[in-house]
Amino acid sequence: MREEDINSKYNITIVDTDVTFKCARETHLLEGMRSLGQKGIPSGCHGGGCGICKIKILSGRNSYITKTMSRTHISEEEEKKGIVLACRVFPKGDIQLNVVGKIKRKILSGQKIWNFS
């Protein structure tokens, strides 16, 4: 691998909110976003287990690689459509994405603890 490949940083864009950040190929998208203080993708376990950082990649299958994600949250069919967990996605090109849904799994919400959806 050439040195510029190892050091490559790609432009990641959250289309709906027009947030952009740079992410290295050895860094997953969620860590890349968080380490630059950017927001937009919900942050959870960073291990592909909790499913909170679900995104849809719009830039095509060649723009990223993935590591194992819990099938509780990402079916094989979804994975093929580019619906993945941001904490298991590593860029190999510029990426455009959208966040899938909002946080739905509230277990305690302070003043409205009994009124979660």
């Binding site: 959870g44 909790c50 946080i103 799994r105 003043q111 603890i113």
Partner: peptide, 25 residues
């Protein structure tokens, strides 16, 4: 009591964080 649940969980901050309350496997 309900209003003191955040302090029950995190005594110093008295605030719940969303990852703690919404993230599980």
């Amino acid at each position: 009591t309900e209003e003191e649940i955040p302090r029950g969980i995190f005594y110093h901050s008295g605030e719940l964080n969303t990852a703690f309350t919404e993230v599980y496997t």
